[in-house]
């Protein structure tokens, strides 16, 4: 079976971003970019399903700028077979991305779409669910375990109260949570091989979708800074401060 893995290029998770002085957004100039961590987990899961013999082909896709080819190559170095870039300079938003992915789902007919539960830039946590709705597919969000058998996928989900397991008919959408797997590192030979794997570029117009943002960002500000307080010398002093100064216990 075929798996489609949509990924996103984001600011590396180790970077502490700064808001631009004109409040138009965060400063991305000369900032290290990387594949969104949840997307790495999605690629890894697809690769593991292929290693288990469940999956025969992994197609990785992103909707973004030309520079996102880098992340597509990374995904292919990790084990994806081919890549599709839906090229746009537009500031992408989940609904538009989901529509582009829907068009690709219609073209590629994957049995499973695995994607990260959220991107760590906009923290939206929407795209997978939106794609599922637009295509009428069931969804297993926040997955910590995925098992494919007998034309169905069973997904264990991390929910607020603990864990929930659902069974979905295929094709289905799965979004990954942190503990689904631990992504591997790409080996040098695989990085070299990935350079020769096919990478197609299409435009949103080719897919007949409009990526115009629905939600307008008026301004972006730094959060209220929290000042470091004091160091206490002993547990006794701590208890005293909490009782008599902060009055919280």
């Amino acid at each position: 079976m075929k798996v489609l893995v949509p990924i996103k290029r984001v600011v590396d998770y180790n970077v502490k971003v700064r808001v631009k002085a004109d409040q138009s957004g965060v400063d991305l100039a000369n900032v290290k970019m990387a594949m969104n961590p949840f997307c790495e987990i999605a690629v890894e899961e697809a690769v593991r399903l292929k290693e288990k013999g469940v999956v025969t082909e992994i197609v990785v896709v992103t909707v973004g700028s030309k520079t996102a080819q880098e992340q597509l190559r990374t995904a292919m170095a990790l084990g994806a077979d081919r890549a599709i870039l839906v090229e746009t300079e537009e500031n992408t938003q989940p609904l538009g991305v989901a529509k582009a992915l829907k068009a690709l789902v219609e073209k590629e007919s994957p049995d499973l779409v695995i994607l990260g539960k959220q991107a760590i830039d906009d923290d939206n946590n929407q795209t997978g669910q939106m794609l599922a709705a637009l295509t009428g597919m069931p969804q297993g969000t926040f997955a910590s375990e995925v098992n494919v058998a007998d034309g169905k996928v069973s997904v264990t989900r991390e929910i607020d109260g603990g864990l929930q397991t659902v069974e979905l008919s295929l094709p289905a959408v799965v979004t990954t949570d942190l503990r689904l797997n631990e992504p591997r590192y790409a080996s040098l030979p695989n990085i070299m091989k990935a350079k020769k794997k096919p990478l197609d570029t299409v435009s949103p117009a080719d897919l007949g979708v409009d990526l115009t943002p629905r939600v307008k960002t008026l301004k972006v500000e730094p959060p209220a800074e929290r000042q470091a307080g004091i160091k206490v010398a002993s547990v006794e002093e701590l208890v005293d401060k909490l009782k008599n100064e902060a009055k919280v216990i």
Partner: peptide
């Protein structure tokens, strides 16, 4: 956004 390192004001 960005794990709370920025606060966006957005309009729908």
């Amino acid at each position: 956004i960005y794990a709370g390192n920025a606060i966006a004001t957005v309009q729908s």
